[in-house]
């Protein structure tokens, strides 16, 4: 039995501690907003927050997440999260949308640590999130937009 703190509730899972957190969330906790894209920490579709920091759920193992606070796209909240979501919706960033859970989780981490990121900060901070539809221009604009609404 492994006990995880996911979105503010404690879940007890009968899984191997070496299972990637991604599959524990998707197949055992039932939270499917966190996506499987590459399984190798190359694309960022599986980004969640662990203790408030972006983490790739396909690479972090369940055992390494024990005792920490895990937040997924379904529950991420607060002024930064609200500003990011609002900017994403205002600019109609999404296309297929599959990567966007991860993009949003990364953008929240970026903006939490840096309220006024410049283009290079965005390039480096968002490097790990691939969008095959190519929505990068709008992601960049939405991050700037969210930064400006956060003041």
């Amino acid at each position: 039995m492994v006990s995880l703190n996911v979105n503010g509730r404690i879940v007890d899972l009968d899984v191997n501690p070496r299972m990637p957190l991604l599959w524990a969330l998707r197949d055992f906790v039932g939270l499917t907003g966190t996506k499987f894209g590459c399984g190798r920490a190359l694309c960022g579709a599986c980004t969640v927050h662990i203790d408030g920091q972006a983490a790739r759920a396909c690479s972090i193992m369940v055992g390494d997440a024990v005792g920490k606070t895990i937040t997924t796209i379904e529950a991420v909240s607060g002024p930064v999260a609200d500003a990011v979501r609002a900017a994403w919706q205002k600019l109609d960033v999404v296309q297929c949308g599959y990567c966007q859970s991860g993009q949003i989780m990364s953008a929240i981490t970026l903006l939490t640590g840096n309220r006024k990121p410049n283009d290079e900060d965005i390039d480096l901070g968002m490097e790990g999130n691939i969008c095959r539809c190519g929505t990068y221009q709008r992601i960049r604009a939405a991050i700037h937009e969210a930064a400006s609404t956060l003041g």
């Binding site: 790739r56 690479s59 972090i60 390494d64 990121p117």
Partner: peptide
């Protein structure tokens, strides 16, 4: 930096 920190992917408990 930002959303690209080593601990985002690398586990303390060993190789994944």
């Amino acid at each position: 930096v930002g959303a690209m920190r080593c601990g985002n992917c690398h586990n303390g408990s060993g190789n994944n």
